[in-house]
Each structure stands twice: as C-alpha cells, then as structure tokens.
Design a protein around this nucleic acid. Structure first.
Lengths: 342, 342
DNA sequence: TTGAAAGCGTTACCAC
DNA sequence: GTGGTAACGCTTTCAA
C-alpha cells in the first residue's frame, strides 16, 4: 500500500540505508553515496511517489518535534477575553520559526488523564492552567519531558520553571492608585473556582499584603457563588467597601452589571478594577480600569525557554539556569475608578 | 532510561504481550490473562512507574489520533478578524469530544512543503487556505490521508470534499440590496494576492453573474496594488461606481479610510460592502455592511466530515457519500450602504 | 563507498 | 491461557 524506503531501495537496486541517506540526508556524515547512484535513487523515489514517513522517523529518533499546550479547559477563542488568543500567538511565534508543531490535546486537558503528559508524543509541554492540584503537581514533577508553566507563582512545582505575572507589584499599583483617589475600604472579588487556584490565592494574598503595607484595614474577600448571585449587598450604593478589585475582567464585568441593576453608580459610589485589561474593558459601561498582564510576551518567553530545555534534554546544548520569570504589570486606568465616596 | 513494556514484563515474570493486554487492553479479544497474573502485572507497573509510550503505540497501529489544520499563513489570532478564531472553535468542538488532537504544523503551512501532508503524523487534514496552486492541488489529490477543504468551490480538487460559502447566493443578496437602493454601477475590489486565489475568482465571478442576471452593466474589477494605493480615482466623491463590493472586511476597511481621506462620504457618495461580517464591521465609521459567512459552523461540519472519512479509511465504517456543502450567507446590513447618488 | 542487521516500543499473529 | 516472533518504517551502527 504505502511506498516505503525499501520499495525505493529495491527499485533503485540499492540498500535501504543508501536511500535514507540520499533522500533524508540523515545525521551520520560518515556515509556518502556516488552521484550516479544518488540520482538513480531520486529517480526511483519520484517514479514511486515516495513520501517519507515522518512519524516513523520521529519514533526512531526519539524526537517528535511537537509541543503541547495545556489550557484549563477546552474553552473557546472569544472576543471579550483575548487571553487564549494571546497565549496562542506567543506560543506560535516561538514555535513556528523552529518548525515545531503545536498540539492541543484534549486528553491532556481532562484532569485525571495527566499521565498522558509523558506519553511520548510531545517533546515538551507548556502548562497554562492556574488550577493546580496536588496530584497534577506531582505528575508534572515526575514527567519525563521538559515542562514550563504559566500563571503559577515561582516554586509551585519543584524544578518546573514558571512564567508568571508579578501579582504583588500589580496589586501595589492598584492600591496606590486607589489610595490616591481616597479609598480605604477595599475588597477582593473572586469566583469559587478560581478561589482555590494558586493564581487566585496569589492575587488575593498580593492585594492583602499591598493593603497592609499601605496601612489600610485588611481587605475583605468576596467569593461569588456559582451563579454569581451573592454580590448584592456589596454592590449597593452604600456598600461596605468603596473599591472592588476583581480576579478577572469577566468577573468585573459582572460586578458592573450588578451595580447598574442596583442603581449603584460606578465610579461615583464604587470603584471597580479588573484583571487582564482585555478588549472587554473598552466595551463596558463605564470602561473598565484593569491590570494589564503581558500575556503574549509571557507565552513567547515561556515557549522559548521550553524549546531550550527540549534541546538540552536532547543533549544538544547546555540547559539554561533560569528557573522562573516574573512580569511587571501595568495598571490601565479607564473610567471605572474614581474618587472614593465619603 | 525509559521504562518499557518489557521491563514490566520482566519484573512480573510474564511476556510482553500479557502486559500489553492487561495495561493497554488492546484489540485482540482472543487473549486473556488470569486475574492473579494481571494483578502482578499492574503491581510491577506501579512499582516501576511505567508510562505507556503512546507514540510507539500509534506507530504500530498506524493511527496517530491527530488532525492537522492548515491555514494560509502562520498568522495570528486577532480581534478585528475573528476568522481564525471561528475556525479553531469549530474544529475544536468537532475534534475534542472524540479525543483527537489538533495540530498546527508550520511545515505544512509553508507552501512548497506540501509533501509533509502524508508524512504519517496525521490521520486527516483540514485545508483552510483559499490560495490553491496547481501544485498543491495535485498534492492534495494524491495525499494518502483523508482531506477536507474549506473556502474552495466544489470540485476544485477531485475527490476532496469542500465546505464553502455560497458565493453566488451571497452576491445575489448583495446585488439585490444595492439595486433596492438604486445602484447601477458596481465594482468588485480585491487585493493582488487574493485575486489569484480560487476563492477570489469565485467571488468576483459570483458578483459578475449576479449583476448580469439583474440586467445591470458588467461590474468592474478593481485590483489594489500591494500598497493599496491604486484606489484613488475609485474613492473620489464622483467615482465611476456608486457601490464597491470588497473581497474582505479588511479591504473594505481600507476603502473606507481612503474615502475619508479624499472627502468622500459613505454611503452618501459611495456604498461599501465587506465580506465576513467580522467584529471590525462594528468599529468602522460608518459601520460596515458585510456578508456573513457561518465560519464556525463550516469548520465544525468540515471537521466532523473529516473524522468520518478518517474512520472510514480505518475500515471502521462506511464512507459518507457527501462530497461538498455550500453555506448560505446572510447580508448584515449596517451603515455603509445607502441610496445611490444620482 | 556500500550493505546487512539491529534496533526504537508497541501490537498482532502464530504456535504451543 | 500463554509466550515467542515478526512486524510498523526508519536510522544507525558495524563489517565488508
């Protein structure tokens, strides 16, 4: 059925090795073939419409040329959150010039199937899910291929480099901005899923510590229920806090809608801050002040580092000693933050 | 180094086959293993931290579980054109529930490397590039794996199913809309790259035939140069045409800007129509009237059909006789079309 | 310069 | 029930 190397060899009257060398110009420069024979081989290959089987080749060489990206869910690309697109853009920019193939593997995304990580199909893995359980942390640690993480504080998994937003710096920026506007009673708003993620905890803690350092009263933690329904009292015009710092833009968008429904004016009654500075921020009413994470650059850097680790694992070059990188985040001030009500 | 099936077999004191059957529950139902022995095997596997090599498995079985999507360029996901995101969403929705892995392979995207199609790494291929040369058409035709195309008129490549916008219907809608507004002198605007693509020619011809059928004078073809600079005379307030139908929203956006620069009012002087009805249409001034292609559905259907072909090729089921599907396109009327100037 | 042969890790087909 | 053995298609020794 399929035309193999051997078919070509047979037709050209040479050995399989000769064909391999001529058509696939393999590594061992030891081997050479006469020009005449080489031409005969190419001729035969053309006649037979030979197509090399890269899968077999990869198998033999123990190198697949594929890198997998793992997201938290199967999710979609959408316009209101450019996060996924940003990650993909960064990853592609890092991968494609080096001819690595990018794989999105559903088995890897289902938690529980984490044992597919080292299943031999990928040379490396970019782990982009903030929800890290003990189990998957252990799996990551014991994986037999290089792994790089995004959105996890440094040291989350021993030996796994992480490329992550500087949550502390970001929250200091937020607090400083809010203090400048006279705010004193802040709260952190999060959903019940993110609440237990490493990233969620890191951001909550970052805000807490920034507030503490500024000498303000401890910020409250507002956890929305799954239906996002618990916000009521916190979104009223006379709510206990004057500023709500949200885990994500999406959440902040929900907060804005709740305020509107309750007749609460933003930012006159309450200031709202998002996280990610996604395109959504420009379309909300009022436009949303938000922390700007350089997601694409983070993804690019993470992937580039991953490739270096892959090559190191293949013995081609020295492993880089970098273990983790923190990224400075700007605060994009828009219209949802203003002077605190008295 | 790596723990293999054989290591487990040795430790458990059984044959490799027994391990394969127990741990990977493979096909041949003929083979059975006693419960006691099975437990010993599982025990050994656990002790050795055995991880099955899915790559080797795929190689042996001649089935990779991977499907590749080929775009016209390495391009990025961006907000103004949701095209790529739409395709990806459709593809993922079709693939992931069936546990197929989605691959983006840069080698496949570089034209000239089309011989990587049948390189054994993919069970099937979704070809999403409208720029189809003779050479790649031939490659597609001779590929040894199932292929499905998008954006190519039916019959473009013999034996390759295509999922494509109904350009004729779409253009009839446009013409009917424009005639209703009193337009008589139309032109089709295209860039020099798309001009030679099958999709570009199909749309141009579709407009031509719709115009002809309506009894209007033959529409002109305006080909922009690479710098998009040739538009001048066609964008003046007294341009020879009263309506410009553009190959894409992006192009239409450029036309709008040219008009503004030349003091031409849209739609008072000239009406402009785009293609794709992307988010960009809502942000232009004036908002852009555009043809709405159901890209995500097309991608979903194309991928679903591809999977059927893949399974058929693996002998699992009968091949579906569908060869091509055309998709009805709506015209999203916004503010860039209006009554023709007299 | 060349060819034969031994794998890569798995599964399938035989005999026993 | 079970274990050898031969593939899958390629690369890479090693001898000639």
């Amino acid at each position: 059925m399929r035309v193999t190397l051997r078919d070509v060899a047979e037709r050209a009257g040479v050995s399989a090795m000769a064909v391999s060398v001529v058509l696939n110009g393999s590594g061992s420069r030891k081997v050479t073939v006469t020009a005449e024979k080489a031409e005969r081989i190419r001729q035969a290959a053309r006649e037979l419409r030979y197509q090399r089987n890269n899968f077999a080749r990869a198998f033999r060489q123990g190198r697949t040329g594929q890198v997998a990206v793992v997201f938290q869910n199967f999710g979609r690309f959408n316009l209101h959150s450019s996060y996924r697109a940003d990650v993909m853009n960064g990853v592609m920019d890092a991968l494609f010039p080096h001819d690595y193939t990018l794989s999105l593997c559903p088995k890897l995304m289902r938690s529980g199937d984490a044992d597919f990580i080292s299943d031999g199909r990928f040379d490396g893995l970019l782990w982009c899910r903030p929800d890290l359980s003990e189990a998957s942390a252990s799996t990551l640690q014991h994986a037999s291929i290089p792994i790089v993480m995004m959105h996890a504080p440094p040291g989350t998994v021993l030996g796994v480099p992480t490329f992550c937003a500087d949550n502390d710096g970001a929250m200091r920026r937020v607090v400083s901005h809010l203090i400048g506007l006279g705010h004193e009673r802040l709260a952190f708003v999060i959903d019940p899923v993110s609440e237990h993620s490493v990233e969620g905890q890191a951001r909550a803690e970052a805000l807490r510590s920034a507030v503490r350092r500024a000498g303000l009263p401890e910020p409250d933690l507002i956890v929305l229920d799954t239906d996002h329904r618990i916000l009521g009292e916190y979104a009223k015009p006379d709510a206990p806090h004057t500023a709500l710092v949200c885990f994500s833009d999406e959440l902040a968008g929900f907060v804005l809608r709740s305020c509107e429904r309750l007749g609460t004016k933003v930012p006159e009654h309450i200031s709202v801050v998002g996280f990610d500075s996604s395109p959504l921020c420009e379309t909300t009413v009022p436009r949303l002040t938000s922390i700007n994470q350089p997601v694409e650059r983070m993804a690019f850097d993470a992937t580039t580092h991953l490739l270096a680790l892959v090559r190191a694992a293949e013995g081609e070059e020295q492993a880089n000693a970098v273990t983790s990188t923190l990224y400075d985040c700007q605060l994009d001030v828009r219209d949802s933050t203003g002077p605190a009500r008295q």
